[in-house]
């Protein structure tokens, strides 16, 4: 579990399925996540099982994003393998009421810190639809650099990455 200023990022449990389906029911929220084709109850249930498998295998995975103030689940965020590329991606998404508050950046930067300082990863990547500027602006704000455009999850994506050295080099040596 990670804690940031306004968020708790905790592992999903089977009981979260209904709420996760609910957060991914809004057409606008899933506009860049494959829409209903990829985000229907059946697919989300499978995806949740994948998250559980990740916890087992890596010790981390996509987590429930909890708004501390209310205790409500408002989205998801975490680190997970990017398909079978061998890369680890950081991901985030949330319901519309919480857009535009810097929440994506808050959790993405916490996951980068966790990934490099605790999980000892060498590189973290992120992918998003080229039109999803809200998402790749977060990547850029985190210090990730654009690498290429390629297909992931069946969709055209911009691909960003940051290495451990780049992550640490932005810091002071004092």
């Amino acid at each position: 579990m990670l804690e940031t200023e306004r968020l708790l990022l905790r592992k999903f449990t089977p009981e979260d399925l209904g709420k996760l389906i609910e957060t991914r029911s809004d057409e606008e929220v899933i506009k860049y996540l494959g829409g209903k084709n990829l985000q229907n109850p059946e697919a989300i249930e499978k995806r949740l099982q994948f998250y559980f498998d990740c916890y087992e295998k890596f010790g981390f995975g996509m987590c429930a994003m909890i708004w501390k103030k209310s205790g409500e689940m408002i989205g998801w965020s975490g680190l997970q393998p990017l398909e079978d590329t061998g890369e680890t991606e950081v991901g985030y998404g949330m319901i519309k009421e919480f857009w535009g508050k810097g929440i994506g950046f808050e959790c993405a930067s916490a996951w980068l810190k966790y990934g490099f300082e605790t999980a000892d990863l060498e590189r973290i990547v992120a992918v998003a639809s080229p039109e999803n500027s809200a998402s790749w602006r977060i990547m850029e704000k985190c210090g990730m650099k654009y690498q290429k455009t390629e297909t992931h999850y069946g969709l055209e994506c911009v691909f960003y990455a940051i290495s451990k050295a780049e992550f640490f080099s932005s810091k002071s040596c004092l």
Partner: peptide
């Protein structure tokens, strides 16, 4: 401990560190 990691993180790419 984090500082040790930080100042050891750039040897490979840039040959600098503490």
């Amino acid at each position: 401990a984090n500082w040790v990691k930080l100042v050891s993180s750039r040897w490979e790419q840039e040959q600098i560190g503490f």
